[in-house]
Design a protein around this nucleic acid. Structure first.
Lengths: 342, 342
DNA sequence: TTTCAACACGAAAACGTTTTCGTAGTTTCG
DNA sequence: CGAAACTACGAAAACGTTTTCGTGTTGAAA
């Protein structure tokens, strides 16, 4: 187990000074050609690689970006990570992944850990608990300390920073419009609670679509689900109590539960009821019938976030601050859970 | 944007030396009570946190562990990460995630990046290309440099290090035995290519189960799939050309494709053909019919890996080396894609 | 021969810690 | 009262780099 080679060791071995070694390896013209070649040959032969930690300390930047997400066992978030990783790697950055488990405390803890030098900046999607609580002091603190921050998906208006989101309203509208187009008239919506911005925005899109088509909004056709755990039962109860010909679900799971429930109660999908979901994951793709769904391009969201962050990191500090919000558009993937247009 | 507080600044502000500040904050009895309290109060008030990079440099350890996986958009790997993250966090470690994209070159590059001080050790599942190539010099190099390495899932015998695997043979055997128990006699297997150890081992389990039940092994009942992309077509072709009453698939996707194909060709699952998969993901759970499957507990694999690695990291270097291989047992999750036992 | 660039290299500071060792000033004890 | 032992603190080295600023040695110009 040979310890790592350092400049100092090379210097001693070749009987020159540390500075000379450093300069030679960085091709400084200050060093004579002969010495330079000798040092470079030696370094190459013994596979010298500079120590990142020392470099980080010296340069005051780590070349790693921290991403904090509520959960990782979730298709959408993994695609985002994948996107972040891709462009980060291309730009010579590493990615430190932390999970908040949707807990406010863990989110704060993670940020504090990473803020003390481990990371140059953050990419973050808020924990459910954080949004509920409405306490964003940890975000503001990071920003105040000069750490760039990019919020994605679950964002909040009151923090001034770069953001990457999808057009939830437009996406939901698109979905509901599709249901209307294929002939649905009584459309239920299965959503999450409102404090997750996503729930509110998609509800808005739902309403807008109805309005534009002169269909009356009916509060009773909306189900808001608090806990993932009991969702299946709630959906079953909800759907058995209201006569509908279309269902707009705010994620894959709800959509699938809806299909299951409907089928079990003797209804046919899509002949009797059309169902449309949000988030295009493995589930939607492989389910039978294939789920028509609104796809949010997680990979692109990750890529844009990383690009935004790195841009901030590498800009000279004198350039003035301004914050962008990038909207990654959603797409409609039509499969077999909605009737075809007439 | 106030810059971070450092020992030096505190020292200057309070007109003491840096050493005094450092000692006071670490509750050294060397420092008088009065001074100590003053310094601690100041530090607390201005929220001093030591710089991790400086600590890393000084202590020669980063308190972060690197995990390199072939792909992240994959339920199994995300559960593993989740497990690693969990125990890493509990023990005060951070997790650096890198993706090899199943490419040998990216795997090597990632290891080199992280080996230069970014990480104290590795948790790694080999890229497909790496296994195919059989070139493991980068692993050996890391070990030689004194960086502990834990291999999981896709491991290789020739490298001496800690390993966490599942009992692929037993798991496959269990699956096939289940098919036999519910009355299947002609059982097809849909597998991956052999150089991924998983493919080979599960095939072995398949054969063993048949053998123990005195059923003749038929080469024609095995399909080996190279590329994920074309799997669906291949499976369709394969199943339409052989009469079977049971299918053992080596992952969720293959299992689902099998069910789909069978249903389309008029067969009923599980009445006519029973199908069993490997890896218990969202897909298996939510599919209709729910997929009977062998579950590999990714979370536990991650936890065990992290524990193993951290144990190595924190043991005193004098303790002798020995390597463990932990086998995380698989479970059989019976759902609706296999007939019930008679 | 003197003067001065140009050249080739080294010393030292800096990044932010921790830790060893040294040393004033005070107390204790014989 | 002198020596020894504490007490409370500071100086400096070390971790591995990069970079600024010397400085000694050449060679050429004057």
């Amino acid at each position: 187990m040979k310890p790592k080679l350092t400049l100092k060791k090379i210097a001693k071995e070749l009987d020159v000074s540390i500075s000379t070694v450093s300069k030679a390896l960085r091709d400084s013209p200050e060093i004579g050609e002969e010495t330079r070649e000798k040092i470079k040959a030696f370094a190459k032969h013994y596979n010298y690689k500079p120590n990142n930690i020392a470099l980080s300390l010296k340069n005051r930047k780590t070349k790693t970006i921290g991403i904090i997400i509520p959960e990782i066992v979730h298709h959408f978030f993994t695609t985002v990570i994948s996107g972040v990783e891709k462009v980060a790697n291309e730009m010579g950055y590493n990615v430190l992944v932390c999970l908040s488990d949707n807990s406010f405390d863990k989110e704060v803890l993670n940020m504090e850990m990473l803020a003390n030098g481990s990371t140059d900046g953050f990419i973050l999607s808020l924990a459910k608990e954080t949004m509920q609580k409405g306490d964003y002091h940890h975000l503001q603190e990071a920003i105040n300390q000069g750490m760039p921050l990019v919020l994605f998906d679950r964002v909040v208006d009151s923090i001034a920073c770069d953001k990457v989101i999808i057009d939830d309203v437009a996406g939901a509208k698109k979905a509901v419009q599709h249901l209307l187009d294929v002939g649905c008239r009584r459309i239920a919506m299965i959503s999450t609670v409102d404090y997750v911005s996503v729930g509110k925005l998609r509800t808005k899109g739902y309403k807008e679509a109805l309005e534009e088509n002169d269909i009356e909004f009916d509060e009773n056709l909306i189900l808001k689900i608090e806990e993932m755990e009991d969702s299946e039962k709630e959906i079953e109860e909800f759907l058995s109590n209201c006569e509908v010909d279309g269902v707009f679900a705010v994620n894959e799971h709800f959509a699938i539960s809806a299909v299951k429930t409907l089928q079990e109660s003797g209804k046919k999908v899509p002949q009797d009821v059309s169902v449309i979901g949000f988030t295009d994951g493995e589930l939607s793709k492989r389910f039978i019938p294939g789920l028509t769904t609104v796809s949010q391009h997680g990979m692109r969201i990750g890529e844009e976030s990383a690009r935004l962050l790195i841009e901030k990191l590498e800009r000279t500090p004198t350039e003035e601050d301004y914050y962008k919000t990038i909207i990654v558009e959603t797409g409609l993937v039509v499969r077999d859970s909605t009737k075809s247009k007439k």
